[in-house]
């Protein structure tokens, strides 16, 4: 009962912040549309890349054109969610730089939650829409029955959720380091460079060591390839279970690290 109340309260705050965020960003109309345009361009680069490469071959490590598109689309959706919901967790960096983290720490709401959902970039919703569109297009062109698509989509949603949790946890792990340094610039795009690399099938890593790194250390495997695999090739118990385990482990480690970092937070001022 208590848990339900707390969950509802936090959800309400999240919705409220999303609403405020959207209001705030549409306050500058020109900027809002320019960014939507820029995000669309950026998304299209990923798609153009795949299209051009597959113009010269029809298979990358066992992935055909449409399957590869699903990987890219998954990456776009996860990235889109990272921006829209969490603003790539950049709030922690900005607040530390401007010394305004204090205002969030003193509130009776879990600090990590507040920092995560404080600002979102609503424009990136077009990334999600593009991704979804590409998935529909790709699924259309793959030989899957309607039943298969339905069943696979069900598990895909969970895999997508885990991918988001992992990407989010990576962002927390890396960007929380900004508590210890004065430099902010390096952090803003730190983790989206990693995410960007998830848009290629991880089967390309033909050395076992690299495969392992891409599975458990920087889990590119679970960030896009796995959801795509489940969607296009069907359920795989081992992979699905690992996905939950990796997501759980990363979330736990990142949370502990964040809480540790907060205790070390020294806001410099007189």
């Amino acid at each position: 009962m208590e848990l339900k109340k707390t969950f509802l309260k936090y959800f309400k705050i999240f919705l409220h912040l999303q609403k405020i965020g959207l209001m705030s960003r549409t306050a500058y109309r020109a900027n809002f549309f320019i960014i939507i345009f820029a995000v669309l361009i950026q998304a299209s680069f990923s798609l153009i890349f795949i299209k051009v490469v597959f113009g010269f071959l029809n298979n990358i490590s066992g992935w055909n054109y449409y399957e590869a598109l699903v990987i890219v689309a998954t990456y776009l959706i996860v990235e889109g969610l990272m921006w829209v919901l969490f603003g790539q967790f950049n709030t922690i960096v900005k607040q530390i730089q401007q010394g305004e983290l204090d205002g969030l720490i003193v509130r009776p709401i879990d600090t990590q939650f507040l920092v995560s959902v404080w600002r979102g970039d609503s424009e990136d919703i077009v990334r999600i829409i593009t991704g979804l569109g590409v998935i529909v297009y790709a699924l259309n062109n793959l030989n899957l029955t309607l039943t298969q698509i339905t069943v696979n989509s069900f598990f895909y949603i969970f895999m997508l959720f885990n991918a988001l949790v992992i990407t989010y946890s990576l962002a927390v792990l890396f960007k929380t380091i900004s508590i210890w340094t004065i430099e902010a610039r390096a952090f803003f795009h730190l983790t989206d460079s990693f995410s960007r690399m998830s848009q290629y099938p991880t089967d390309i890593f033909y050395h076992k060591i690299v495969q392992t790194i891409a599975t458990v250390i920087i889990p590119l495997f679970f960030m896009a390839t796995v959801p795509a695999k489940i969607l296009t090739r069907g359920f795989d118990l081992k992979i699905v279970l690992s996905s939950f385990i990796i997501a759980g482990v990363f979330f736990y480690i990142s949370r502990k690290f964040f809480q540790f970092a907060l205790t070390k937070y020294e806001s410099a001022s007189s």
Binding site: I60, I204, F205
Partner: peptide, 22 residues
Amino acid sequence: IQIFVFGVFFYLWSSIYREGGQ
């Protein structure tokens, strides 16, 4: 990070070419 990024591209092209693509 950029060395990491390069690493991924390295593997992308290497695995394509060793599977006979160009």
